[in-house]
Each structure stands twice: as C-alpha cells, then as structure tokens.
Design a protein around this nucleic acid. Structure first.
Length: 262
DNA sequence: TAGGCCATCTGGTCCT
DNA sequence: AGGACCAGATGGCCTA
C-alpha cells in the first residue's frame, strides 16, 4: 500500500523538471541536489515505520465507516505528510539560498522565502542577459581580432563593458543591503557561491535585485516562440505587502472578530 | 505594539 | 483510494 515516498518526492511534477539540465554548473545537477534526494529517500523509509501505525492491516474502509480514533490517526498521518512536504520545500529553499550571491554566515540573518525567490529570479535574469552580452562581446572581439592584434597588444586596457559593470554591482549584494535589519554584514564568501560571485569583490547597494530588474531588460533578448521571463513580459508582484490584502494587525483583528462572531 | 515571517493544521482539488 | 499540492486560518517568535 505505502509506496515509497522517495519516488513521489523526486518524480512529481514540481521537482523533476529541475533535474533535467545536467550541464556543468547547473544548479540541480550538483551533488547537493542528489544528496537531497537521497536524504529524502532515507527519510521516507524511516517515515514508513511511523505512518504504518495508521494503516489498518488488510481491509480498507470508506471514510464514513471510520471510527473517531481512525479519523484522528488519518488526520495525524496527513498532517505528518504535509509537515514533511513543507520541510522538504524549506530544504530546497535553503539549497537555493546557498547558491545565491549574498553573504552567508552565523551572524547574518537568512533571506526570507519571498526575498530568496525574488533574488533568485532577478539573479537568473541578470545572468541570462550578461551571458547574451558576453556572447556578443566574444563575437565582436573575435570578429575584429585581426584589426585588434595590429593596433593593440594590451587588451587589458579595453574599457569595462557597461553590462559587466552592472553585473559586478548586482552580484555583490550582501544581506545588509537586502535586509535592513541584518545585525552585522559579513564579508565571508558564500561556500557554494556561483563562480561569478567568488571573484567579484565590488560593494554596492543592490536592493534593485529584490525590486525591479527593469534595468536588465534593456539588454534582454526576446526569442520568438520562447516563453519570455523578462520583467516586461512578466511583471513582478509589486511588493510583499500586496500578497496580503490586509495588514497583519487587521488580519489578527479580523480573526478575533470572526471568533466573536461565531 | 504593529508588522513581518514562519510552522502547522486543515479541507479542498487534482492526479495516479 | 491514496497521496501530492494548494491556500486559508491560526498562533508564536522576533524586531523596529
């Protein structure tokens, strides 16, 4: 009856697509994600022992036939599954945080979930557009290589491309700039930072990464027939606050009111 | 104290 | 039928 959670954890629609790309440097092609899946397998096997308590050997009953205790057991089982699901989700979120370009450390407050997602999205957009620019630059450099080799022997004196400047600015973010309540910004490099962050040591405010990546879209290419991730085509949710229709106090007040009403 | 963030519970819906 | 996924509700913790 209880088929292993391991399959379900990694084969369900929400996660498997992430593993497809196995190219070098792919986020989910690395060991971290593989061990993540293996851990889940181990977890679920251990979990089976627990959930087995709830499965009445042999016969299955319809819900209406269940006794109070059985319903309670079922509820506990469902709750436990949901809890595990959320833990897995948080683990994946931690994995994402690990590879995000911001300072990590015990003294640094970790990014909230919404911040992590917004940062990740904008980081991806930024990397995409810089990759395109790099391709263009390489094309230009090799296209004009014959001329260059005759006129200059010091390519290092070439001016820094504007986009690579913005790249430097963007990836050098620290939590202190992303989250104003960070106690003390750490300059320690991220253990699993993408290469781009490990050798870029610029320091500038990058709240823009969490806000509006519109400054990237000027160089963003629109490919025919391809879903476009740019901020023009897919505007960001305005702010976190818009996710909640009511302020917290109002929500709490409303809840209380609801309680009194009932 | 208000507001932000989070974990958990819960019921509904969809999928296998 | 069972499990995954989702969203709403609720309460706790923390910080400015």
């Amino acid at each position: 009856m209880m088929d292993s959670d391991a399959d379900s954890t990694c084969s369900r629609s929400s996660s498997p697509d992430l593993v497809v790309d196995d190219s070098a440097g792919s986020f989910f092609s690395n060991k971290m994600f593989q061990t993540y899946c293996q851990e889940n397998r181990a977890d679920s096997e251990a979990d089976q022992g627990r959930t087995e308590l709830c499965s009445r050997g042999g016969k299955t009953k319809t819900r209406s036939e269940l006794s109070k205790e059985e319903i309670h057991d079922l509820r506990l089982k469902v709750n436990s599954r949901e809890r595990k699901r959320m833990h897995d989700l948080n683990q994946a979120m931690d994995g994402l945080r690990e590879v995000m370009p911001y300072a990590h450390g015990p003294s640094v407050r970790k990014l909230s979930k919404i911040s992590t997602l917004l940062l990740a999205r904008n980081y991806i957009l930024m990397l995409s557009s810089s990759l395109e620019e790099m391709k263009k630059l390489v094309g230009d450099v090799y296209g004009g290589a014959a001329v260059q080799s005759r006129t200059s022997t010091h390519p290092a004196h070439l001016p820094l491309h504007p986009l690579s400047q913005s790249l430097h600015t963007l990836v050098s973010s620290t939590p202190s700039t992303l989250q104003h309540h960070s106690p003390s910004p750490s300059s320690a490099p991220a253990p699993h930072s993408p290469p781009s962050t490990s050798f870029l040591s610029f320091h500038a405010p990058v709240q823009s990464l969490l806000k509006d990546p519109l400054h990237l879209t000027s160089s963003y290419r629109h490919f025919p027939g391809m879903p476009c991730p740019c901020s023009l085509c897919q505007p960001l949710p305005t702010t976190t606050s818009t996710l909640h229709s009511l302020p917290h106090s109002e929500r709490k007040k409303q809840r209380k009111d609801d309680c009194y009403m009932n």
